[in-house]
Simulated assay, not measured.
Amino acid sequence: MLRMLRPDDDDDFVSLRTILSHVGDRSFTTVILLTALVLVSPISAIPGLPSTGMLVIVGVASQYLVGRDHLWLPAFVLNRQVQRSKLERAIEFLHGPMGWIDRRTKARLSLLTRRPIKWLIVLTIIATALPWPLLEPLPMVTSIGATAVSLLAIGLVTRDGLFVVLGFAFIGAMGTAVFQLWERVW
């Protein structure tokens, strides 16, 4: 999957349109996963990228929920570009974690990756991504939510319900930490 993200040799900047042309316009969960994985990497510190990632993830997930056959995104999102060198660093960063995940995923607890539970997972992905523009001023904080989205999306892409469970557990732990912090501050 990471090979699909690789930019062409002559490109100094890579648009989301180019990346999606490599991935395909029917792979809703793959696009969600790739977007979340990019935001887990240090590239998420680039101003505007977490907001763009949220738009992509929410847009793609919403289209899945309404039953679209093909992915559609507005031109201003598709034309958003990132430097080739930064994208390549993000891809290199992701090779280690993705290799680890690749060796550990298999079809298990697959009931958790089918409808109607799949719709709940996609709604959870939307709810997790929506606050990212507000969190963007805090460098790398969106990477925490992107990790949860990545775990859920890995579960959907590979039909491995264990990763769905891990994604919900991560969100639960994140929510508990935020709630405890909130109680201490107020």
Rank of each mutant, 00 (worst) to 15 (best):
S27D: 12
R84L: 01
V40K: 06
L37A: 05
V31A: 15
T105C: 08
I125H: 08
L120V: 13
I125N: 11
H70K: 07
P139I: 15
R108E: 14
L33E: 12
L49M: 07
L123K: 04
L162Q: 10
T29H: 15
W72C: 00
G67Q: 06
L39G: 01
M140G: 04
V141T: 14
F163C: 08
K106S: 12
T128P: 04
G175D: 08
H95V: 05
R104M: 15
S21W: 11
T30P: 06
L33Q: 12
I154R: 07
D160K: 09
A75G: 00
L138A: 08
W132V: 01
V60T: 05
Q81G: 00
R103F: 10
F28M: 03
F170A: 09
D11M: 09
P133M: 13
T142S: 15
L109C: 07
P47D: 04
F13V: 04
E136T: 03
V77K: 00
L65V: 04
F179S: 02
A173V: 13
I121G: 05
E92V: 06
I46G: 00
F93Y: 14
T142F: 13
R114Y: 05
V23E: 01
G53L: 06
L16F: 13
M54E: 13
P47H: 03
I121K: 07
P42A: 10
V40M: 11
R80S: 13
T158Y: 12
G145H: 10
H22D: 08
D8R: 15
F76Q: 09
M174D: 06
F168R: 04
P137M: 00
I19Y: 13
F76H: 14
T158C: 07
A127E: 06
V38D: 07
Y64L: 05
I91F: 05
L152C: 01
R3N: 07
G161W: 04
S21F: 06
Q63R: 03
V157P: 10
R114D: 12
R108Y: 07
P50F: 12
V66M: 07
E88T: 10
K118W: 09
L71P: 04
H22L: 01
G24P: 05
L112M: 01
V31M: 15
R114M: 11
T52F: 03
L162I: 09
T128I: 12
T29S: 10
R159A: 15
R3G: 10
L16P: 04
T113P: 05
R26M: 13
T176Q: 12
L181T: 09
P116D: 06
R26G: 13
M4T: 03
K118L: 14
T142Y: 12
M174G: 09
S44K: 03
T176Y: 15
A61G: 01
F170S: 14
H70F: 10
G67H: 02
T158L: 04
V31T: 15
W132C: 00
I57P: 01
V38S: 06
L34D: 09
R89S: 14
I154W: 06
L16M: 14
L166G: 12
L111V: 12
Q83E: 10
G145L: 04
L78N: 08
F163Q: 09
M174Y: 14
L20K: 04
R89K: 11
P42C: 11
Q63M: 01
R6M: 08
M4F: 11
G167T: 10
L138T: 15
V56K: 00
G59L: 01
P137E: 01
Q81V: 09
A148H: 00
P133C: 09
A75H: 02
G59K: 03
M1I: 14
L181R: 11
